[in-house]
Every structure is written in C-alpha cells, then in structure tokens.
C-alpha cells in the first residue's frame, strides 16, 4: 500500500465521525464510530503486532492477544477505581506506562522462549503459552480475580472529557493506530528492520554476516509486545475491564483471523481485517444467525486461506497488478503464509 493511499485512508478515518453523522441518524453514527470503527482500530492494533512479526520476521505468533492481555491485566491490577482493587491506587498516567512495560517484557520473554523454533513449531509453542496464561488467569484469584476478571477500568479523564466518550476514545485510538502503523513502516527501513527481513529470508546468511540472529528475533518480539500492549490497554478500556475469556483460545485465534483476512503481507492488512471482522461480528445476526457468528467468520477465514493466502490486501494488490502491465523484474510481494 503506497504512502498516498495510507494518507487517504487516514484522512477518511479522521473525517469518519462527521461523514457518518451526515448519512446516519445520530445514535447510529455514534454506534458506528465507537463500536465498529473504534473497535476495529483497537483490535487492529493488536493484530498489527502479529502482522508486523509475520510480514517482516516470518513469525506467526498466537501469543499476541496474550501480550495485549498482560498489558490489560497490569493496567487493571494497578489502576485506581478498578473492581476489585488488587494493588490499585495508581493514576492512569503511571499505570499505562507500567502496563506497556509489562507487555514489552512479556513479549521479550515469549521471544526468548520461542527463539530456537520457526514456522509451525513457533505457532504451536506460542499457542500453548497463550492458553497457559489464560488458564492461569482463570484459576488464580489472588492476582487475576479468577474467572470473573477485573472490572471498571474506565480510563482517565482527558481535557475534562471522560475517556469513554465515543469521539474522544475514537480519536485516541486512531492517533495510537496511526502512530504505531507509521512506526512499523519506519522501523522496517532502519538497519534493525532490514536485518529482521534478512533473517526471515535466510537466517544462516544473516548469521554469517555477523549479526546476532537470536537477539534480533527477541527484539522483534519485544517491539511486537509493545504494540500489542498499546492495543491491550485500549481494548481493556473499551471493554471496561478484562477477564480470562478475553485472552483465551477464541480471542487469540480471532487476532489470527483478523490478520490473515486482512493479509499477512502488509501492516495495513491488520486494520482492513479488523474492520471486516467488526462488521461481520455486528451484522452476523442479519446475515445468517445471531448465535452462529463463529461459523460465518470461520468460513470467511477458510475462504481467504484457500483462495488468497495473503488476504484482502494481497488480493487487492494482485487485482491492481492485473490492470497495469507488469514491469519486468518486479519481485512478488513477500507471502510468509505460504512458505513452509
């Protein structure tokens, strides 16, 4: 996706609440802003961390929702006003950085545990880790309040407006998403990002050039942990709290679905997939059956994996390529989902 297209999408998203207000009645416009676009942005940030790892490192990790959840739990445990108060007492200005730090450290830890594995082994290990954390949170009362989780994490008051005001929440989420998206695109052009892509393509050759492959891999997981942590703080405030269900198998797989539907080939795929997911989730009732959302999204996911492993973004890219005469020597886009 070109920079021009990204800026156009950003402009559209900035104007979206106003545009929605023109075509929809006020309550519906507000619903779209907060519950579809806002939700798509915050889960898109979590999915961005997976897309970053998969696209530029070739690591398909299923632990990204877990890292988001670790940030969410850290926030809920530390912050004032959460019910029940586990530690409590910290203002958001201190609890949010602590939560991001926790997610980054947890990301480094996941990277260190999985450092010697690749591909499907990495997928299995990160899935096992993710479910281990979820089951621990479910069974532990002292720190995680067990099955019920921690409620009433409502976010700070900014500029005299409560954080959960639909427009404030939407614009904070949009600002975070845009900053992280730009950050990822910048990072992959730095020497670190180039080495990471080299590791994706041929780790032995990169090691022979004198780079420490393990260290770069662990650092990439740390970066992804930070991104997921940003998403986790926002999703926790969006859901007014956190419970083991929001980091369980279903939630982890949902992030994978979002990233794959959008496309593991470009960071924009995370947000495209997240928007499609949110729209399907909201309108599953009128499409098929209210309770059968999983069947619906599962079939969409299967269709994408079977027909276009690089997702909607890859599909759009190929359709765009069909219109233009192909240039000689053009390299096909990286498609990590197909390597085996």
């Amino acid at each position: 996706m070109s920079a021009r297209l990204s800026l156009l999408a950003l402009a559209l998203l900035v104007l979206a609440p106003a545009l929605l207000g023109l075509v929809l009645p006020p309550n519906q416009a507000q619903f779209w802003t907060a519950n579809i676009l806002g939700r798509a942005l915050v889960y898109g940030i979590v999915a961005l961390s997976l897309t970053f790892l998969a696209t530029y490192g070739g690591f398909v990790s299923l632990a990204q929702m877990t890292l988001a959840g670790i940030a969410g739990y850290a926030l809920a445990i530390l912050v004032e006003g959460a019910v029940p108060g586990i530690v409590g007492g910290l203002p958001y200005a201190a609890a949010v950085p602590a939560a991001l730090l926790a997610a980054t450290l947890a990301g480094l830890l996941v990277g260190a545990i999985a450092v010697r594995t690749r591909d499907i082994y990495l997928l299995m290990i990160t899935l096992a880790l993710a479910m281990g954390v979820a089951r621990f949170a479910e069974s532990n009362i002292d720190w995680f309040n067990g099955y019920e989780g921690i409620r009433n994490v409502v976010g700070p008051v900014l500029f005299g407006v409560p954080f959960r005001d639909p427009h404030l929440f939407y614009y904070v989420a949009l600002a975070a998403a845009a900053a992280l998206y730009a950050g990822v695109l910048y990072l992959v052009r730095t020497p670190f990002g180039l080495v990471l892509q080299g590791i994706r393509d041929n780790p032995r050759r990169v090691a022979a050039l004198g780079y420490d492959v393990s260290l770069h891999r662990i650092a990439a997981f740390g970066v992804a942990g930070f991104i997921a942590g940003c998403g986790g703080v926002l999703t926790t405030i969006y859901n007014i709290g956190i419970s083991p269900g929001s980091i369980g198998l279903g939630a982890s797989v949902n992030i994978l679905i979002i990233s794959v539907i959008g496309g593991l080939g470009h960071p924009a795929g995370a947000f495209v997939g997240s928007l499609i997911f949110a729209v399907f989730d909201t309108f599953a009732a009128s499409l098929y059956d209210r309770d059968r959302f999983n069947t619906l999204i599962g079939l969409v996911f299967l269709g994408i994996v079977l027909a276009s492993p690089d997702g909607i973004v890859g599909l759009a890219r190929r359709l765009g390529g069909l219109r233009r005469p192909s240039r000689a020597g053009e390299q096909p886009a990286p498609r990590p989902a197909e390597t085996g």
């Binding site: 797989v253 994978l256 599962g298 996911f301 299967l302 197909e338 085996g340």
Partner: peptide, 24 residues
Amino acid sequence: QGQELRQALVTIGVSIVVADQLLA
C-alpha cells in the same frame, strides 16, 4: 502438502466451524 503454515491455518478455520456447528 508442504505448505505447513497454510495447513495449520486451514485446520484452525475448520475447527472453528466444526465446534460451532456441534454447539448448534
């Protein structure tokens, strides 16, 4: 065959649909 990651993704999709249909 041979596209291991894609196979894993396909089985994830199948498991979601099958579990949901069994629930139904």
